[in-house]
Simulated assay, not measured.
Amino acid sequence: MSRSVLSREEYLDRWSTLHGGYDPRTSRIVGPWLTVVHAVATPFARLRVPPDVVTLLGGLVSVLAVWLCTLGDRWVILAAVVVGLSGLTDSLDGAVAVMTGRETRWGAVLDSVVDRVSDVVFLVALWVVGAPPVACLLAGVLLFTQEYARARATAIGMDDVGVVTIGERPTRVIVVAMFLLAAGIYPASASFWASLGAWASVGIGAVALVQLLIVVRRRLT
Score class of each variant (00 low, 15 high):
residue 1 M to R: 13
residue 2 S to Y: 11
residue 3 R to A: 12
residue 3 R to Q: 14
residue 5 V to K: 12
residue 5 V to P: 09
residue 6 L to E: 13
residue 11 Y to K: 14
residue 12 L to C: 03
residue 14 R to V: 02
residue 14 R to H: 10
residue 17 T to Q: 15
residue 20 G to A: 06
residue 28 R to W: 13
residue 37 V to A: 06
residue 38 H to L: 08
residue 39 A to I: 10
residue 40 V to E: 11
residue 41 A to D: 12
residue 42 T to P: 05
residue 43 P to F: 11
residue 44 F to E: 07
residue 46 R to V: 10
residue 47 L to V: 04
residue 47 L to S: 09
residue 50 P to T: 10
residue 51 P to H: 12
residue 58 G to N: 06
residue 60 L to Y: 04
residue 61 V to E: 06
residue 63 V to R: 04
residue 64 L to M: 11
residue 69 C to M: 13
residue 69 C to L: 06
residue 73 D to K: 11
residue 80 A to T: 10
residue 81 V to I: 11
residue 82 V to G: 00
residue 83 V to S: 05
residue 87 G to Q: 05
residue 90 D to L: 03
residue 91 S to W: 00
residue 92 L to Y: 07
residue 94 G to Q: 10
residue 98 V to N: 11
residue 103 E to I: 15
residue 107 G to R: 01
residue 112 S to N: 08
residue 115 D to E: 10
residue 116 R to C: 00
residue 118 S to E: 08
residue 118 S to K: 03
residue 118 S to G: 05
residue 122 F to S: 01
residue 126 L to F: 03
residue 128 V to T: 09
residue 135 A to C: 11
residue 136 C to D: 04
residue 137 L to C: 03
residue 137 L to K: 01
residue 137 L to S: 06
residue 141 V to G: 08
residue 142 L to S: 05
residue 146 Q to L: 14
residue 149 A to Q: 15
residue 149 A to D: 12
residue 149 A to E: 15
residue 163 V to G: 02
residue 164 V to L: 14
residue 169 R to Y: 02
residue 170 P to Q: 06
residue 171 T to H: 09
residue 171 T to R: 08
residue 171 T to Q: 14
residue 172 R to S: 01
residue 174 I to G: 05
residue 177 A to Q: 06
residue 177 A to T: 02
residue 178 M to L: 14
residue 179 F to M: 07
residue 179 F to A: 03
residue 181 L to N: 00
residue 182 A to R: 11
residue 185 I to H: 01
residue 186 Y to Q: 09
residue 186 Y to E: 13
residue 189 S to F: 11
residue 190 A to W: 09
residue 192 F to K: 07
residue 192 F to P: 05
residue 194 A to V: 10
residue 195 S to Y: 07
residue 196 L to Y: 12
residue 201 S to Y: 00
residue 202 V to H: 02
residue 205 G to N: 11
residue 205 G to Y: 02
residue 206 A to R: 02
residue 207 V to S: 03
residue 211 Q to F: 08
residue 213 L to H: 03
residue 214 I to P: 00
residue 215 V to K: 15
residue 218 R to H: 09
residue 221 T to L: 05
residue 221 T to F: 00
